[in-house]
């Protein structure tokens, strides 16, 4: 760095002072806007959530506000079945979604990585739901699952499902129905990321394997998969966190129903804070959610030996 500055100085004397003065302060100036925004609108809210988690705080019942110690946490773990229900559902949701999205996304990426006629169009169409929002996904699947005019009515014609009830309002079908809707837009995410990483596999490796007579399955297992490992670990982790936190789809598709059957923990928290105004308790639940996410992520990264064994 110092060398570079020295080189810059010589031919441009008028800039000498700036060139020598900037490098020290410049990086701080450059990250300042980002840092300020993040402190003000992420760090500060997070800290206030931690603070309120130890308080009774409910704007509609101000007479009960005040320090609560760990009461909120104790209540959540010992006295709130809804907390456990929604947490279990969240885990189920994340596990099934991420697993299936990875499976289909990997398969799709491998397919569209081949050379075939119509590949560009195929890729564009396969990836297209990626950019569709959670709300729009809900709109589309509400139309599909509509009991009178949806596609499920036509499925009922051929004996799949029954007439009259929407798949979204039946406790027996709502989980798979919501899973499929979210898969529809989630699979392209993995397909895109994995395809991007597939492009960097050295062709020589396959060629060598070919010469050694390895089958395509073996090539996949011993070359492709190890190469993709880091990308898979990272994308599943990001996706899992995202699936856990994201409430757009379920909020608009089922609004947590029927009968609370599809309420995730974040949805429950949002309801507790926004509708019930019980902000102290919601903050405690948020804190619990943070800790769970953090611990799970650490364990996951450790177990998957992310980044290779010290290479």
């Amino acid at each position: 760095m110092a060398q570079a500055a020295a080189v810059a100085k010589a031919p441009a004397p008028p800039r000498r002072r700036r060139a020598s003065a900037t490098p020290r302060r410049l990086p701080y100036l450059l990250i300042a806007p980002a840092a300020l925004l993040m402190v003000g609108f992420i760090a500060y809210p997070v800290i206030s959530v931690f603070y309120y988690s130890l308080q009774n705080y409910n704007p509609t019942k101000p007479w009960r506000n005040g320090y609560a110690g760990f009461d909120n946490f104790v209540h959540a773990f010992t006295d709130d079945p809804q907390f456990w229900d929604t947490l279990t559902f969240s885990a189920q949701w994340v596990f099934v979604e991420v697993g299936l999205q990875l499976l289909f996304g990997l398969a799709l990426a491998l397919i569209v990585n081949q050379t075939f006629v119509g590949r560009a169009l195929g890729r564009a169409l396969v990836f297209s739901p990626w950019a569709v929002s959670g709300v729009l996904t809900s709109v589309i699947w509400v139309l599909l699952y509509n009991s009178q005019t949806g596609i499920t009515r036509y499925l009922a014609d051929v004996g799949i499902g029954s007439y009259g009830t929407s798949w979204l309002s039946d406790t027996a079908t709502v989980f798979p129905a919501a899973i499929v809707a979210d898969l529809w837009r989630g699979v392209p995410f993995f397909a895109i990321l994995i395809l991007a990483d597939l492009q960097s596999v050295s062709k020589d490796l396959y060629e060598a394997a070919e010469v050694d007579g390895a089958s395509r399955l073996k090539q996949f297992w011993h070359i492709t998969l190890p190469h993709l490992k880091d990308a898979i670990v990272l994308s599943t982790l990001l996706r899992a966190v995202w699936e856990f936190n994201n409430v757009d789809l379920l909020y608009t598709l089922t609004n947590g129903g029927p009968a609370g059957e599809t309420t995730t923990l974040p949805l429950y928290i949002a309801n507790t804070s926004v509708d019930a105004h019980n902000f102290g308790y919601a903050s405690a639940l948020t804190t619990v959610a943070f800790v769970i996410l953090l611990v799970c992520s650490m364990v996951y990264l450790r177990l998957s030996k992310f980044g290779g064994e010290g290479k």
Partner: peptide, 12 residues
Amino acid sequence: TQFVPGALLLVP
């Protein structure tokens, strides 16, 4: 920050 859910920070 990737672990901080925007949805849970709505109230603050």
